[in-house]
Design a protein around this nucleic acid. Structure first.
Length: 269
DNA sequence: GGCCAATGCATAG
DNA sequence: TATGCCTTGGCCG
């Protein structure tokens, strides 16, 4: 379920299980056959995520870029006999499969799975905004975000979904971060106080980190010591027409740029 | 079993 | 703003 935290978890899995090894790559579905042929058997030297994109660097200087889009999914098989598993018939459309002797990772339905050379990677990176999950020791990533928001007349609810403004936020975190900050999603970025912009960034850092740690988009985290159910996890996301968990007013819904936007009309004036 | 919606984004117009 | 991508989970019956 792909907002930024999921992709970082995948990058971590690749780091732990594949980096440093020569890995096998195959494309049972066929749509990544050329890439698989070009890179199968190469040593994976690095794995990292920026927002919702995964980058896998290989010893020959090439990089695989993967973007799950809304449908893409990974399926991992750890501590298995891969040689035996590879002889089994493939179920469904497996675009790419990555493996060592004991670990197999199958990728289905991604929007993007392609091989890039260095300058193409840099071009992709240039159009991605700061990622709250990546280190920001000098605060410059936060500054990039704050400047973009402060000079934009676009609604903050749209800016948070714009991957060149901040990368890794999706529809769930967008709704929840704005609720937690008490900000109406239609407020233009330029109308926000610096303190509010700072709060949005800081809460993104905190919430996405919880997502990476737990694997779930828990945004009422202050309330739980054990894992909440899906129905308990969030304040407003997918709760239209139900009572706000803070003020009891009905949660609103609207379509904004083709995506469902949820907010509390009282808590987020 | 069928059907729909979904955490996203590129492209066309 | 509309459409295509093309998988999965959840809901309905």
């Amino acid at each position: 379920m792909p907002e930024g935290h999921t992709v970082h978890r995948t990058a971590n899995d690749f780091q732990r299980l594949f980096v440093g090894s020569a890995i096998g790559i195959d494309s049972p579905q066929g749509r990544f056959s050329a890439g698989a042929q070009a890179l199968s058997g190469q040593v994976l030297t690095n794995s990292y995520a920026i927002g919702k994109q995964l980058f896998l660097d290989f010893a020959n200087g090439q990089t695989i870029r993967i973007h799950l889009g809304i449908f893409g999914k990974w399926r991992w098989y750890k501590n298995i006999d891969v040689a035996a598993a590879l002889k089994e018939p493939v179920t469904g459309e497996v675009r790419a499969r990555f493996f060592t002797e004991s670990v197999l990772a199958d990728l289905r339905g991604p929007t993007i799975c392609e091989v890039l050379v260095q300058e193409q990677v840099e071009a992709v990176r240039r159009r991605l905004g700061p990622d709250p999950l990546n280190p920001d020791p000098d605060g410059s990533e936060y500054q990039r975000f704050a400047k973009r928001v402060a000079k934009s007349k676009t609604a903050i609810g749209l800016l948070l979904m714009d991957q060149s403004v901040i990368s890794g936020i999706g529809n769930v975190y967008r709704a929840e971060i704005l609720f937690r900050a008490g900000i109406n999603p239609y407020t233009p970025g330029s109308s926000l106080k610096p303190k509010q912009i700072q709060e949005l960034w800081k809460d993104s850092v905190d919430l996405l980190a919880i997502g990476v740690k737990t694997g779930f988009m828990i945004t009422r985290n202050e309330l739980f010591t054990t894992r909440p159910t899906k129905a308990e996890r969030n304040f407003v996301y997918k709760r239209e027409g139900q009572a706000c968990r803070v003020c009891s007013k009905k949660v609103s819904i609207a379509l904004a740029a083709g995506r469902k936007l949820y907010w509390c009309p009282k808590c987020q004036k």
